[in-house]
Design a protein around this nucleic acid. Structure first.
Length: 458
DNA sequence: GTAGGGTTAG
């Protein structure tokens, strides 16, 4: 019996199955078979599916290889590449692929709504306003699928802190508006801390999980427990209380409003806890001074089989630092690389330097600083500020000046740095320097932003 | 048969 002919209709769904299962091994086998027997007329579609499969299997280099070696790319090929790159955090790369598409394809029709959608999203992520506006112009010329494209445009302008432009896009829509477009506007208001506007949108729409999530984020920002509780009630009435993401934000809202016990009760009730659930709860403990509880939770998380990420370590390190748990903090810091293969970033070093500095371990602080530079991290302002603070606490005058000099070089126009430096001089009783600094600040007309705390009234 | 919008922890 003659074996049936394998064509694109056979390969594509099989590759799709490998994608869905993240089964790279089988995916590669199918890829090999395809190379052996492929016919040129089916290459584009199958290769596009392969690009997608390799992305889903976390094998970016294979995706790029298939893409670069493809003779004939169609619009879907380009779109797949662009959208998957964005999903993998490579927005800049995605834009460069879009530019290649524009240059190589030579016809304006090659762009579809999908292409524009992805590119606007990339611009929003990069806050590339100029490029985003250019694509907006193309959208206006095309004049199709305005609802979806308007949704990403609203997000673009909101990401660039231009809420007036977001509103313009929103109110110029004369088709029926759906949840997503309302949510985009709401999310823009939340990102830009527009308290009243957020609630006014929220009150106009039928509750959905994403809108309520956004609403709770505003409550966290402004520590508005009263409205937070109202949203909690709405979430229960509409049957959203098993939504993990919503519960994570709810937990965070209670914690930010000082209700740590309520936050913990909610945490316990989350059936499918994610790394964000755990990290939010650790942060809740840490920021209220419950370092031991935060660390216990970290251990419990390890037992539960969910892997911590870099934010988790930031939460637990800061919790240990604020409670003086030096040994536990050190264990965590060391386990980052050793046990989880996560390279500490500058923000982790800043946090850990702070912890060691408060504990009086100034030599270890400087060892750590050297270690950081050996690992190829340039010190950030946060690192230098922690370092300066550690020197202040430990009266390490000479090396403190070194940290101060580099901090001021890096951010010469930030008032808070001058204040830190002034505090450093004050701690080491060099009052002439303090006066000189205050005068310098006046000359540079730098003013430290007034501190404050938020409480909701009524 | 392959591609698209709005959500969480620092």
């Amino acid at each position: 019996m003659r074996s049936p002919k394998l064509d694109a209709y056979t390969f594509t769904p099989v590759i799709g199955a490998c994608s869905a299962l993240c089964d790279k091994l089988r995916g590669k086998q199918v890829h090999a078979l395809f190379i052996k027997i492929c016919s040129s007329d089916t290459q584009t579609i199958v290769n596009t599916a392969l690009i997608d499969m390799y992305f889903k299997c976390n094998c970016l280099s294979s995706s790029v290889k298939v893409f670069d070696e493809m003779q004939l790319k169609d619009t879907v090929t380009w779109n797949t590449m662009i959208s998957r790159l964005i999903q993998n955090g490579k927005a800049r790369y995605a834009i460069s692929v879009f530019e290649r598409m524009r240059d190589e394809e030579k016809i304006a029709e090659c762009f579809s709504v999908f292409t524009l959608c992805s590119v606007i999203k990339a611009c929003a992520l990069l806050k590339a306003l100029r490029q985003g506006k250019q694509v907006h112009a193309v959208v206006i010329v095309m004049g199709r699928d305005l609802l979806v494209l308007s949704t990403v445009l609203i997000d673009l302008y909101a990401s660039c802190a231009l809420m007036e432009e977001s509103m313009k896009v929103f109110f110029s829509l004369n088709c029926r508006k759906d949840d997503a477009v309302y949510n985009a506007l709401l999310s823009g208001c939340v990102q830009n801390r527009k308290y009243e506007e957020s609630f006014s949108i929220l009150s106009e729409i039928k509750p959905n999980v994403i809108a309520l999530t956004n609403g709770l984020m505003v409550c966290s920002m402004f520590t508005d427990l009263f409205r937070g509780k109202q949203i909690h009630g709405v979430a229960i009435r509409f049957g959203f209380k098993s939504d993990t993401q919503l519960c994570n934000v709810l937990l965070d809202m209670y914690a930010k409003c000082g209700k740590v016990v309520t936050a913990r009760l909610l945490f316990n009730q989350i059936a499918h806890k994610t790394v964000v659930s755990w990290t939010s709860m650790m942060d809740a403990y840490g920021s209220h001074g419950y370092g031991v509880e935060a660390h216990d939770l970290f251990k419990l998380m390890e037992e539960s089989g969910i892997s911590p990420n870099s934010v988790t370590f930031l939460a637990v390190l800061s919790a240990c630092g604020h409670s003086g748990l030096v040994e536990l903090g050190r264990d965590c810091f060391l386990s980052m690389r050793k046990k989880y293969g996560i390279d500490p970033g500058p923000e982790h070093y800043a946090c850990y330097i702070d912890l060691l500095g408060r504990a009086g371990l100034i030599e270890e602080v400087w060892d750590l600083f050297d270690d950081m530079e050996k690992n190829g991290h340039m010190p950030t302002a946060a690192v230098l500020a922690s370092l300066l603070n550690a020197c202040k606490l430990n009266l390490d005058i000479e090396r403190g000046e070194f940290a101060a000099k580099r901090l001021i070089e890096l951010e010469p126009d930030k008032a808070c740095n001058f204040v830190s430096l002034s505090n450093f001089y004050a701690a080491t009783e060099r009052w002439d320097q303090v006066v000189a600094l205050r005068n310098l600040m006046k000359k540079k007309s730098l003013r430290k932003e007034t501190g404050g705390s938020w409480i909701a009234i009524e």
